[in-house]
């Protein structure tokens, strides 16, 4: 099965629209709306026997993009399904009921980006439960590392510039 055949099978099996972008012979990216996420997971994981590798979350201008990487080991290619959760409503359907292996990664994306997964059995923060605030998500673009470290006492407040400025003013 090559990527072209795969796309055709996917088109015949699924009843929703998607956008295909072929990067190379081994990599293909599919963009879908977030309502169809569960359906495409059933088609790719259950019916076409792909292996779920990982999901990665990225903060982009339009919202939070979550990419699910499915590997087809016998056919030697990776299909990446990308979907978007907008800023004002960062919610996605959880895939744990279909893919048990997705438990941890959904918790991690919730932890670092604040995307909520509806229907996840145990949606706790995976890595940093006790030291990040409710609304602090390190992988969002508005996260300020320097300010964060100063607030949590991880880095001493160093002010090199101020004294220099004062001396300059005095000399004037």
């Amino acid at each position: 099965m090559k990527i072209q055949e795969f796309i055709e099978i996917l088109k015949s099996k699924s009843k929703f629209p998607f956008e295909v972008q072929q990067h190379s012979e081994k990599r293909v990216y599919i963009r879908i709306a977030r309502e169809n996420l569960k359906d495409i997971a059933i088609v790719i994981f259950k019916e076409m026997n792909a292996k779920f590798s990982i999901a990665s979350g990225v903060h982009i201008r339009e919202g939070f993009e979550v990419l699910y990487h499915f590997t087809f080991d016998k056919d030697k290619f990776i299909c990446t399904v990308r979907t978007l959760a907008p800023h004002d409503d960062p919610k996605l359907d959880s895939l744990v009921s279909i893919i048990p292996g997705a438990t941890w990664i959904e918790r991690e994306i919730y932890d670092i980006l604040g995307v909520q997964f509806l229907g996840h059995p145990n949606l706790k923060r995976l890595v940093k439960a006790e030291f990040l605030g409710e609304k602090e998500f390190p992988f969002r673009k508005d996260f300020n590392i320097k300010k964060f470290k100063e607030d949590h006492g991880l880095a001493p407040k160093i002010s090199f510039i101020q004294p220099v400025e004062q001396t300059v003013k005095k000399s004037k």
């Binding site: 940093k128 030291f131 390190p138 590392i145 964060f148 470290k149 991880l154």
Partner: peptide, 8 residues
């Protein structure tokens, strides 16, 4: 050194 969750 610059990582955000390292205490020292």
């Amino acid at each position: 050194k610059d990582a955000y969750s390292v205490a020292g």
